[in-house]
């Protein structure tokens, strides 16, 4: 199932500078796997120890997947997935 994925500036070197790409999957995990096959190297920027990287935010529409089912969060065809790097520091 195709879904839209918005790519943040810092990951656009991996997506040929595209701001928005179309990927596939019924869950966030599947979408990330499919992104990885399209744009190798993106998975390791998004995941750490098989979880969403602590300083990477992934949203389905406007919901942070940390407050849903994490990587098992389901996506529908009309959904937009947004990836944003966290702004953080000490």
């Amino acid at each position: 199932m195709p879904v839209k994925v918005k790519i943040p500036t810092i990951l656009r070197t991996l997506t040929d500078e595209q701001k928005e790409v179309v990927s596939e999957g019924a869950t966030i995990r599947e979408v990330i796997e499919s992104l990885e096959s399209q744009y190798p190297g993106i998975r390791e920027r998004l995941l750490k120890n098989d979880e969403v990287h602590k300083f990477m935010n992934i949203y389905v529409n406007e919901d942070d997947i940390r407050f849903k089912d994490q990587l098992a969060t389901t996506v529908q065809q009309s959904d937009t997935i947004t990836i944003l790097p966290a702004v953080a520091g000490g």
Partner: peptide, 22 residues
Amino acid sequence: MENAARSETFFQFDPKQQFKVW
């Protein structure tokens, strides 16, 4: 922005607010 860490030694933009601002 809201500091989601609510810490004296760390900050992180609240992810929900960050989404809206972006």
